[in-house]
Design a protein around this nucleic acid. Structure first.
Length: 180
DNA sequence: ACAAGGATGGACT
DNA sequence: GTCCATCCTTGTA
């Protein structure tokens, strides 16, 4: 993964992450679904300006941004240029599947990482990861191969700016959180 | 100090 | 399809 990969707007980074490999302590797989969140985007955590929670989004590109939602789930983002971020929404498991099964108490491969909360649990994402650089352990990222067919659609689970087509996925993948 | 609501997932009808 | 657990963050007084 080139050093400047994340030093671009989230809207440019998000589709390029489809097909990339993400590992955390050796556990992970192929990123098959992402969403872009930008600074002047009412749905973005950075929209109201700097706060304690969104600190990593204002701390520069190439960092992990981890937040807690609905009192239950953790979600993993990669920070980009201009206080943007990309939400990692689904992964096709390839490495450390046994550990994912243990963490998720779930044996169906399609239910291990098919959603932002699920993949966070399967990969052991928690507050300890917040703000960490993406090019250092325990994180490992490898760029996608060329020729990836990317599907585009509106983002999921938001009420503000819900019509923007800023969700990206690997076309035809069986590991998405939802169909496009 | 307090109330509102959320980038979800699992259980259930 | 509907319902809702559960708690952190944020805006407001």
């Amino acid at each position: 993964m080139p050093a400047h990969f994340f030093a671009r707007p989230a809207l440019a980074v998000a589709p390029d992450l489809i097909g990339a490999t993400l590992l955390i302590d050796g556990v992970g797989g192929l990123i098959v679904e992402t969403e872009a969140y930008q600074r002047d985007d009412p749905a973005s955590h950075s929209f109201p300006g700097p706060t304690k929670r969104n600190q990593p989004m204002f701390a520069g590109p190439g960092l992990a941004y981890v937040y807690f939602i609905y009192g239950v789930h953790w979600c993993l983002n990669f920070t980009c240029a201009e206080a943007g971020a990309v939400l990692i929404r689904a992964i096709e498991p390839t490495d450390g599947i046994d550990q994912m099964i243990e963490r998720r108490s779930q044996t169906n491969p399609r239910n291990l990482c098919s959603g932002p909360g699920k993949l966070a649990q399967a990969l052991g994402v928690g507050p300890a990861l917040n703000g960490l650089p993406l090019d250092e352990k325990p994180l490992e990222l490898r760029a996608a191969s060329s020729g990836i067919d990317v599907a585009i659609g509106p983002r999921i689970g938001i009420t503000k700016a819900a019509d923007l087509p800023w969700r990206f996925g690997l076309k035809g993948s069986r590991f998405l959180s939802r169909r496009f």
